[in-house]
Simulated assay, not measured.
Amino acid sequence: MPGCFKKTLFALASLTSFVSFILIVVAMGTPKWITGRILCKTGVDLVNATDPELVKFIGEIYYGLFRGGKIRQCGLGGRRSKFAIFPHMVKKLNTGLHLMIIMFLCVAICFSLVSLGFCILNAIKVPYRAIKGPAGVCLWNFLAGGFVGLAVTSFMAAVKFHHLTERIANFRENVFQFVVLEEHFEDCFWVCVASATAHAVNLLLMAMSGIRFPEIKTKTEEVTVTAEDIMY
């Protein structure tokens, strides 16, 4: 019974590691980490627009780690455009921080795959101690979840403290200046948070695998030997 219980936990941990890997890959390739509304400040100042007219100058923007798009509203109707973060726009952003976010997620992908491999190994074989046992799986999941957490924290810092949305909105805008009215994190950002949560679940599963169940021993009946048994 304990062996089946541990194999089941390692199988669940394998599935969770695979789901975490998929979530990170999907999040990195999706262009909607942030969505927001941008105001064309230059257009508003030119026509001295009042509150009812501001709607004509409020556009939209969305972006991820590699690409995005925006709708410019400068009083003459909306103009849609798409952009890529690499190779030119990243030079106008906080380049080091943006590259660190991508690097953290790539490292998290690697550790998620390592965790997946060792979970499968422990599920089908008697686990080695140290790196290949439950303690090792905990190590890989802790590292993977930690790097995802670093990536998420760094992205939040870039948005809140380094004005990432405003920099992207004003990239190559020589005439108009845009101001960010509101911005919020989209589902793809929370997918990364869910990936870190999946690794936390794996840590809980590994802790449960250390539970030792009492072994069920069958009671042996004592055999009494009589004199008649010896004679015959």
Rank of each mutant, 00 (worst) to 15 (best):
G117W: 02
G117R: 06
F118H: 12
C119G: 04
L121P: 00
K125M: 07
V126K: 14
V126D: 11
P127T: 06
P127I: 04
Y128N: 12
R129W: 06
R129L: 08
R129Y: 07
A130C: 10
K132T: 10
G133R: 10
G133K: 11
G133V: 06
P134V: 12
P134Y: 12
A135P: 03
A135L: 13
G136F: 05
V137K: 12
V137R: 11
V137A: 14
C138T: 13
C138S: 15
N141S: 15
N141M: 04
F142M: 15
A144Y: 05
A144R: 05
G145D: 09
G145Y: 08
G146K: 09
F147A: 11
F147T: 14
V148Q: 07
V148R: 10
V148I: 15
V148F: 06
G149C: 13
L150Y: 07
A151N: 07
A151F: 11
V152D: 01
V152S: 07
T153W: 13
T153D: 01
T153Y: 14
S154V: 01
F155P: 03
F155K: 02
V159F: 04
K160T: 10
F161L: 14
H162P: 01
H162D: 13
H163V: 01
H163G: 02
H163C: 02
L164K: 04
L164R: 05
T165G: 05
T165F: 00
R167V: 03
A169P: 04
A169F: 01
F171C: 02
R172V: 07
E173L: 02
E173I: 00
E173H: 01
E173P: 00
V175G: 00
F176Y: 10
Q177P: 00
F178L: 05
V179M: 02
L181C: 00
L181D: 03
L181M: 05
E182R: 10
E183P: 00
E183A: 11
E183K: 11
E183F: 00
H184F: 11
H184M: 06
F185N: 04
F185H: 09
E186A: 15
E186V: 03
E186M: 10
D187A: 10
D187V: 07
C188E: 08
C188H: 14
F189I: 02
F189V: 03
C192M: 12
V193Q: 05
A194S: 13
S195T: 04
S195I: 03
A196Q: 04
T197P: 02
A198M: 05
A200Y: 09
A200E: 01
L203P: 07
M206D: 12
M206C: 15
M208Q: 07
M208D: 00
G210L: 13
G210R: 15
G210S: 11
I211Q: 09
R212G: 04
R212L: 09
P214V: 01
P214C: 01
E215T: 05
E215D: 10
E215W: 00
K217W: 01
T218R: 03
K219A: 12
K219N: 08
E221S: 12
E221V: 13
T224M: 11
V225Q: 06
A227N: 13
A227G: 13
E228S: 13
E228T: 12
D229V: 09
D229M: 14
I230A: 08
I230S: 06
M231K: 14
M231L: 14
M231H: 11
Y232H: 12
